[in-house]
Each structure stands twice: as C-alpha cells, then as structure tokens.
Amino acid sequence: MHDWDDDLAVPFPLEFTIQATPRSLQASKSARETWKSMVGEAARNRIAASREFTFLDERPLSVTIFYFPPAPMQGDVDNIVKPILDGMRSIVYRDDQVIERVVVQKFEPGVYVEFNSLTDMLQHAAAMDPPMVYVRVSSDTSWRRVP
C-alpha cells in the first residue's frame, strides 16, 4: 500500500525528449540554467498532456538518460546527468534524493545499437535528427531485486 493518489501523482513512467545538446557541469552558469529550464519545460509539458494537476510524492525513482549526439561526444557522458536531474526538480519530484538509480548512455553516430524493445517515445527519439536527449523516469523498483 502506498500513501499517494494514483490519479493525482505524477504519472510514471514519464518519458520525454529534448532535441538539443545537453549542457554539462562545465558549461557556463547561463547555459546550464537555460538547459535546466528546457528539461523542466519538456517534463512539465509531458505531465500536462496526461494530467491537469499533479502533486509530488516521495516514492523512489530511477532515471534513464539516452543521448544521441550528432558527432562523437566531446566531454564525459556522466557530466550531463546532474543538470538534467536538477531540471526536473520541483516538476517531477520534490528533491533528487528520491532518485535511487540513474542509467545514462550515449549513442554516437556509426556505433551499431540494437534495442530489444522500444517505447513509442524512445522510437521517436532514435528516429529524430540528433542531437536528441531521451529521458525516462520510473517508479518501478524491480531493479532492486538483484540476482
């Protein structure tokens, strides 16, 4: 049993895309803030498409970030994570302390990748011209069951 109303909570899994180059921790403060605003707006729009009103609860979440760059990525893939998580704060969750798991991967041009299953949103992201960032936030904690 949980203490949130499924009709009012943020609908998970939540998927959205941003067709832009993510900003890293090394970007200027202005560039990082602009990027975080883009992330927040994309998340807000996706939530609004399914719910008029939501409240933020404390359930544990996992985040998947896939980046499709237009050329080999400059910099480290781990540096794009924090600005993306910060951009979703107060929109998808109150505080990123509820994030228990983050999966991040880059898919550079010319590197063959085979997806076993694609959601409609991930299929859209993979088919678009890069740069493209795909984000999925999930409340499914099945990953906690370690074999």
Results as ranks from 00 to 15, higher is better:
Ser37His: 14
Ala43Phe: 08
Ser24Lys: 14
Trp143Val: 11
Phe107Gly: 00
Lys29Ala: 14
Glu58Cys: 03
Met132Glu: 08
Pro70Ala: 12
Ile18Met: 13
Asp6Gln: 03
Tyr134Leu: 07
Arg89Pro: 00
Ile47Arg: 01
Gly40Thr: 13
Glu100Gln: 15
Glu52Phe: 02
Tyr134Trp: 08
Val39Ala: 01
Asp129His: 09
Val104His: 07
Ser117Met: 10
Ala20Gly: 04
Ile80Asp: 01
Ile99Leu: 04
Asp95Lys: 08
Glu15Ile: 03
Asn116His: 11
Gln26Arg: 15
Gly87Ala: 03
Ser117His: 12
Tyr134Asn: 07
Ile47Thr: 01
Gln123Cys: 08
Ala125Lys: 11
Gln19Asn: 15
Pro13Met: 03
Asp6Trp: 01
Asp5Asn: 15
Pro109Ala: 06
Ala9Ser: 13
Pro11Thr: 01
Thr21Gly: 02
Leu56Lys: 11
His2Ala: 12
Phe107Tyr: 14
Met121Asn: 03
Phe16Gln: 10
Met73Ala: 11
Gln97Ile: 14
Val77Phe: 07
Ala49Pro: 03
Ala125Asp: 05
Thr64Ile: 11
Lys36Ser: 04
Gly40Glu: 12
Gln26Pro: 00
Phe115Gly: 05
Thr54Glu: 02
Pro11Lys: 03
Ser50Phe: 06
Trp4Lys: 09
Trp35Asn: 09
Ser37Asp: 14
Ile47Glu: 01
His2Lys: 13
Ser28Val: 03
Pro131Phe: 03
Leu8Gly: 06
Met132Arg: 05
Ala127Phe: 05
Pro69Gly: 05
Tyr112Asn: 10
Ser138Asn: 09
Glu108Cys: 05
Glu58Pro: 00
Ala49His: 08
Asp7Ile: 06
Ser37Met: 14
Phe66Val: 13
Leu14Cys: 07
Ile47Ala: 01
His124Tyr: 12
Arg44Cys: 03
Ser37Glu: 15
Val81Thr: 10
Lys29Glu: 14
Gly110Ile: 12
Glu58Phe: 06
Asp86Gln: 15
His124Ala: 11
Asn116Trp: 04
Asp7Pro: 00
Ala49Trp: 04
Val102Gln: 10
Pro72Gly: 04
Glu52Ala: 12
Trp35His: 13
Leu61Gly: 02
Gly75Met: 04
Ser30Gln: 15
Thr141Ile: 14
Ser139Glu: 02
Met88Ile: 05
Ala31Trp: 04
Pro13Trp: 05
Phe115Ile: 07
Val103His: 11
Ser24Asn: 12
Glu100Gly: 15
Trp143Ile: 12
Phe68His: 08
Met38Ile: 06
Asp78His: 14
Pro22Gln: 04
Val92Cys: 05
Ser24Glu: 14
Val133Gln: 00
Asp96Gln: 13
Pro109Gln: 09
Asp95Trp: 02
Ala127Glu: 15
